[in-house]
Design a protein around this nucleic acid. Structure first.
Lengths: 357, 357
DNA sequence: CAGGTTTCCGGAAGCGTTTCCGGAAGCGGG
DNA sequence: CCCGCTTCCGGAAACGCTTCCGGAAACCTG
């Protein structure tokens, strides 16, 4: 099968118009127009005939009025390098699909350079709205999008979203509290934090929650136990190694993402230690991989798909010119206890809280 | 901040036209047209003035000629429930973005019911082409898409793609051989296979490769050691448990996906056994999670992003009416040795091949 | 300053499509 | 056979936009 394949079957000379179709079908131009637009005041016979020709010539409308809506939602990530993203995509896609809209996924790899070009594309395809996900660009793009009057919703805002821009997030702070409380109850006193980039709102909220949960038990979160990562596994490994090198290493680690938690696992493994016997680990997100890590990871569940879905619904409301009742939504996080947390070594399982899901 | 937000700022009465803008700006209609289309034969002052009005009124083209290309690529998955997908998306998005096109991601959850509706959407938005990923729908949709003359490329074909439809895959068979050879060289004799759904081409190829690799060493792959999963973790767990229950359990497992390999990990963990001491495990895909599993997973790398990119390039070629030189492409798989494979218990590390990455 | 070139813009014509309106059939009931 | 009604379709006009072309003004160049 070495035959090559041609893309457009009929590249005769010029795009066909309804005039051509009309002439060939022996009907008038308006009639063809009616068929194309699915009006019902055309006889079955005529419709059949015209439709056949339409299909045969691969007719595509090429001037006429543009539809008021493009039925496209733009979903913009900073990067597409994590299973994280697919959860959001799934939520958005489901809602968009139900509304007959397509989901355009893009990544503004890093810098505004490509963002400029991306904006042009956006404008050309007349997207109905933009969902911006945890992006540093939020600050740069926000105003531009605002001005171009494209509906905008921010998912998991990186900072305070501009006024008038609805956002959907999760209760990061509460999640941090829950994680800390869980570990405290197990008897841990030195609970380290491996956070995300400090300039992100969600990172700060998780850390503050952690601190609050610890302090509620009359403990303090020492500075040496707070490390900054970038949500990726590598940073979890790196920071966990630093923590284990401490003269008095922690007995538990709360990592601000599941991926970093896996990095912590690896640091533990490389030391010949074990989770949770030597170190308890709590993650954040509850991605698929949390269930299937060895051991299954205790983590703070963040309903990513639901967040995407909620954001998409809000965006569709905006695009339709409906009012958005709740410009700021935070969905609840919940602690999911699995097998990566246990009482610290040397402490009898007093009021044990570990165990299966 | 309880203020509601309105989507469309100016819903005065009627959509603004360039005629309105022209009148208000005190210029002619063609001039506004030129500004809108970014022509360069407009003075800076005039352009500025018109652009301001355009923005202010939120002008959107509403008739004129449609662009010949929509600059949209449709990327269709069966389901969006795996980190798998995001790799493909990334590859496609990169190429599409570079070509100024958007990537529309959708999931035809299961059945043709929604596929029908989806096709309608597709047609309405006049997508430039469709990338179909490992879908059972390939058979159903293929012909329909064919007739509607939408360029189509199949990624990781589920079966033999229809003639005339280019496809991009990976050398699944060779990957299976590599995995088996690696395990045989470590001294394994009973190497089980946990495969994907048998009706998928890639599943069959991986199993056949496994068999071939084993037989090349003068061994046979016994039927009891061949299990069928669905590429997801749960099935890996289930099938591995069945294998471990065998009177003479295998000393190594080749799972046809990384996710199933993690399921195998979990089965081993639940038995109180260890990887690789008690069971060597090889996966397939080399997703991110393979690197960060405990222990890091030896796996057959499948260049998913590159596959997506190659498919997208092919699709763009088709959409442009260029000829596609290679209707069928298979990208190379490579074995990545990490720490989940070792010689079987009771066998001295003869010609050891385990070790770090 | 004459002549040529470039820059910038408007009038007119044209694009493919839709909308409006009216007329020709077809049909059943008186 | 006529009447009113519906169904189906065509001519003409309108739609919003683009392209073509020519002319006025500004800007050089010697």
């Amino acid at each position: 099968m070495t035959a090559t394949v041609r893309g457009v079957p009929d590249t005769s000379s010029r795009q066909v118009t309804i005039t051509d179709i009309a002439r060939e079908a022996g009907v008038s131009v308006p009639t063809v127009s009616r068929v194309v637009n699915g009006r019902d005041d055309v006889s079955a016979a005529t419709r059949e005939k015209v439709e056949a020709l339409l299909r045969h010539h691969g007719y595509r409308v090429q001037r006429g009025p543009r539809p008021s809506r493009a039925f496209l939602l733009d979903l913009v990530f900073d990067d597409l390098d994590s299973p994280w993203a697919v959860e959001i995509i799934r939520g958005v896609e489901e809602v968009a699909h139900a509304a007959g809209a397509g989901t355009v996924v893009s990544a503004v790899h890093g810098r505004s350079a490509s963002a400029e070009a991306w904006l042009q594309n956006l404008h050309r395809r007349a997207s109905d709205g933009v969902l911006l996900v945890t992006s540093d660009l939020q600050q740069d793009l926000g105003p531009v999008l605002r001005e171009s009057s494209v509906p905008l919703v921010v998912v998991d805002p990186a900072g305070l979203p501009p006024v008038g821009v609805p956002s959907v997030g999760a209760t990061n702070w509460a999640g941090g509290v829950a994680a800390a409380e869980h570990l405290v109850r197990l008897g841990h006193r030195r609970i380290a934090h491996v956070g995300g980039p400090a300039h992100l709102l969600c990172s700060r909220a998780r850390l503050d929650g952690h601190r609050a949960g610890v302090e509620a038990a009359g403990l303090v979160l020492q500075d040496e136990l707070v490390r900054e990562g970038d949500f990726r596994q590598g940073s979890g490994l790196r920071e966990a190694q630093a923590l284990l090198d401490l003269p008095e290493p922690p007995t538990a680690v709360f990592a601000a993402s599941d991926q970093m938690a896996l990095g912590v696992y690896e640091a533990v493994r490389r030391r010949g230690l074990r989770v949770p016997e030597d170190l308890s680990v709590v993650g954040f997100d509850d991605l698929d991989l949390a269930t299937w890590a060895s051991p299954p990871l205790t983590t703070v569940r963040q309903p990513l798909a639901e967040m995407g879905a909620a954001a998409a619904r809000t965006l569709l409301d905006l695009a339709d010119g409906r009012e958005v009742p709740h410009p700021r939504v935070e969905l609840a996080t919940t602690l999911v206890v699995r097998s990566s947390t246990a009482p610290p070594r040397g402490l009898a399982a007093s009021d044990t809280e570990s165990g299966g899901k």
